[in-house]
Design a protein around this nucleic acid. Structure first.
Ligand SMILES: [Mn+2]
Ligand SMILES: [Mn+2]
Ligand SMILES: [Zn+2]
Ligand SMILES: [Zn+2]
Lengths: 138, 138
DNA sequence: ACATGTAATGCAACAATGTTGCAAATATAA
DNA sequence: TTATATTTGCAACATTGTTGCATTACATGT
């Protein structure tokens, strides 16, 4: 099991409390988490700005990625949770419980772009019900 | 050429100034527009809250749809600009000029969802350079 | 054209989130 | 342990989302 310290060291980042807190939060969870979900029980543990800047640092260093949902909310997940061969990377958002997952299964995407357009990446969010909510609601 | 009034009438919505202003802004443009882009020259023409509520009304009545980009910014486009047979509907966001387009070309998307998950829709945003910016930047 | 009821608007106010500058605290390497 | 560069917390401000309520405008029937 890889540790937060190892992840940070690998990117030449200092092992600060806030960074370790966020990475551990994500390591202990298979879903993507919002800033408030990460803070959890201890919302005052770190300053809001520190949290904000730390998330930027972790994203820029390639440790985490951010997922922006259609309701403007934002969640974060570890990049190490993705092991897709192809670079396409999609997410599932449950409309009922608001859970967001990184999808690891096979994904195919093709779009016909206008002439001369260049694609650098694709963001995909699938909306629907997760297994729990689907059975619940029927 | 369809008019804003006709679009509103068809949805049993009153033809108010703000609604017509927004719909005309989108009719005169092939790209998706942000709230500020819509306001354009006359940012004070309508109250911020009126604009906000009007966009909600137009979206709920199915006249426009909103596109949330990965930088948390939001743009809007007319649904009548979409004539895709399939219901998959994707957007292109130019990282350079920030232009957002509704893609009308053929699009294919398939994702393998976890067991029992139910999909209700997919949001796709392709990031890259538009034709102008691609040739510009080289 | 006018009155009428209903729906939309503007204003005030507040919440949530994003963003910067700067001084104090901290992590690492010598 | 100390030095130095980095990170943090605080204050402050910007932007956007959101609600309640009194005023105004729209569409309909007269
Ligand atoms: Mn992901
Ligand atoms: Mn569109
Ligand atoms: Zn769910
Ligand atoms: Zn461009």
């Amino acid at each position: 099991m890889i540790t937060a310290e190892q992840i940070l060291r690998k990117q030449d980042l200092r092992g600060t409390a806030c960074r370790k807190f966020i990475i551990n939060g994500l390591l202990n969870n298979d879903k993507a988490l919002s800033e408030n979900e990460l803070k959890g029980e201890s919302p005052e543990l770190f300053d809001r700005v520190t949290f904000y800047r730390t998330l930027i640092t972790l994203e820029e260093s390639g440790i985490i990625h951010k997922i922006v949902l259609n309701d403007n909310s934002v969640k974060y997940a570890l990049n190490s949770h993705h092991h897709n061969e192809n670079n396409l990377h999609s997410h599932f958002h449950c409309e009922e419980c608001d859970e967001v997952l990184c999808l690891e299964g096979k994904t195919r995407f093709e779009a016909e772009l206008p002439d001369k357009f260049v694609s650098h990446g694709v963001f995909v969010v699938i909306e629907g019900f997760c297994a729990d909510c689907a059975s619940h609601i029927k």
